[in-house]
Write a protein that binds this DNA or RNA. Structure first.
Lengths: 351, 351
DNA sequence: GGCAAGAACTGTAACGTTGCAGCTCGATCC
DNA sequence: GGATCGAGCTGCAACGTTACAGTTCTTGCC
């Protein structure tokens, strides 16, 4: 009956010898069915009888069948790959580690693999995204360092590539994202400093081209107004500057006549530099100056217990981003794929 | 002449319309050659005429031909993937980020993609390796957290899977690796403390099941002997313990009668905890106690300028590991695929 | 009894690539 | 002049999968 499938080396699967991984053909041979039937049965197609379906699935499970990724990919174009696009000149810190852990844990129970696609600042940030799309090497993409009008978002939208962004855009394109509410963070931070009696605050802001620069700035400005505080401009420094730069700039700022008595810091590593700068200038933390900082790892209170911290859970962000791209690929409703994580309350050291 | 290849939709490539990526067929049609010839010509096969070869390669370059990964993989089994196996319960810090940057930069000029394969401590560490081998989902593997007798190394060797390890084994199997010379580091660290007049040293060691535990311990012990110093056992703490644990244990240690006056620390994050513990116990860094620590990011001197540090370049390690697996895949000589990175000199703070 | 309908299954072809076994044709040899 | 050779090219088949277009066979209807 099975003139075609029977007499080839699939029989070897059963009779022993070299064990190459089972394929549909193996199962077809074992069950006496056609390859097509097996394929359909494994995907719960309705036109396959319930008994057959169960039988095939049982055999498949028993022999540890796993669809061949290359076969599926060649036939259907589905790669089962999510590409994480990373800037390899990322600032210091465990940020990226946690993001990757979060993503890969979320992908673990799915058939998706995580591929890291790097680019360096010298390259066009669009380059890796173009590569993924041109070579169709992933079903979905995750990007970070989002700008309000982000060319990558435009490009992927135009080319129908599902993606999720770690940060929000403001360009009239709706898309999946996850973001930390930096506006709320800045407000909380200012409120804390106000409660401590601080009057003249400076902001160690993100790079001004990124979306969350605006969010953080807005929250900062709003809260200043609300509490009747004034801002000491700290314009040239951003969390992306080198440690040495931030340190020097902070020290200089504190030696000016109208020195700040409080800082809001947008990133943990920047805070290390900020503290050093404050102390270089001869001021004492918790006495002359207070600092509220975000952190992604829990080291700041070991640096100086006088710091006030808000924790940002990047691992969670990774998991949310993974869920968001997968949801997009599955065609789920956009609203459920956009999430904003609220800052925890400002924490003082409790030793 | 070309009854088979000519009249299909490959023509559409040239005439415009929907642009699906070019394949061998496209080039075959454009050059008037057979698909096989084009394939051979692109790999510089000797049986293709020099003129034809150049012509084909020119056309391929012009239209931006890229081999279809799924096609190649299905046909040859070659995945062009390197899998990085990671423990998602990794200690804090940018360690993994840097490793990934190093690897992906080294892979960038090659056709290889980097896939991150996670596992958590609760799982069998062999599981991800088995997965990669059973599904043949990578051409090479990179693993870290190496044990002297590592089951993953044995497994991959037995199954002929190329790999490189971040750390050395001692099990009679030669394989590619990159390692930081933790023995030399510990010796340098002890020497520094001896020069500072310290007499009773404690070691914040790696987890005792890992290879570099032994290396660091040996270097530590050798140098103690050499300089006539004594060890204060600090047995329960390892760099993998939580920050709170290390902190508490360090404080306790310092309140014992025979307290240490110097520490050698095996990891940056551990040093944060160590410093806190020392200060909890009421001792002063640089006065009552000195600490020499490894670090992978440059934050320790901002934590306390009194610390002595040795830098470990993890990005370099990543690049070396990538080179090592690729070399193994290419069948290169083992000796050239094993590298040991020497610690930089101990650095004091220069503010 | 003949026929239509549908349930359950099937083979073929194709995705893009490469190993293999050819084929053609001009040059060389005896 | 016919056989031989090799350079240069070719089509076929296969890797594992799935869309598509059937093919059987049972069942129910008139």
């Amino acid at each position: 009956m099975n003139d075609k499938t029977a007499p080839d080396e699939s029989a070897a699967q059963v009779t022993g010898g070299e064990t190459s991984p089972p394929t549909l053909k193996t199962i077809a041979f074992m069950t006496g069915l056609g390859v097509t039937t097996v394929s359909r049965a494994l995907k719960d197609a309705p036109e396959i009888g319930a008994a057959t379906r169960q039988r095939v699935q049982l055999v498949a499970r028993q022999i540890g069948y796993r669809p061949n990724r290359a076969g599926v990919r060649l036939r259907t174009g589905k790669t089962n790959v999510i590409s994480l696009v990373l800037n390899t000149e990322e600032q210091i810190g465990g940020f990226v580690s946690d993001l990757i852990y979060g993503i890969s844990e979320a992908l673990a129970p799915t058939p998706y693999h995580l591929v890291v696609t790097p680019y360096s600042r010298t390259n066009d940030p669009l380059e890796p995204v173009r590569y993924v799309i041109e070579t169709a090497s992933a079903d979905g993409v995750i990007i970070s360092h989002i700008e309000p009008d982000d060319p990558r978002v435009r490009y992927m939208t135009e080319h129908g590539m599902p993606f999720a962004t770690h940060g929000r855009t403001h360009m009239g394109i709706e898309h999946p994202f996850h973001d930390f509410d930096n506006r709320a963070y800045a407000r909380e931070a200012v409120q804390k400093l106000a409660a401590l009696g601080r009057k003249r605050l400076a902001l160690l802001a993100p790079p001004s081209n990124l979306s969350y620069y605006t969010h953080m700035r807005d929250g900062f400005a709003d809260a200043l107004m609300e509490h009747g505080l004034s801002e000491v401009p700290f314009p040239t420094a951003t969390v992306d500057h080198s440690i040495e730069d931030i340190r020097k700039l902070a020290a200089e700022l504190l030696l000016r006549p109208n020195r700040p008595d409080g800082f809001v810091s947008g990133a943990g590593a920047g805070t290390f530099a900020l503290v050093a700068g404050v102390e270089d200038a001869g001021f004492k933390l918790g006495q002359d100056v207070d600092i509220v900082s975000k952190q992604t790892s829990k080291l700041l209170h070991l640096l100086r217990p006088q710091l006030y911290v808000v924790n940002e859970d990047v691992r969670l962000a990774g998991a949310e981003l993974a869920r968001a791209v997968l949801g997009r690929i599955a065609g789920r409703d956009l609203a459920s794929l956009q999430s904003l994580s609220q800052p925890s309350a400002v924490e003082a050291y409790e030793g």
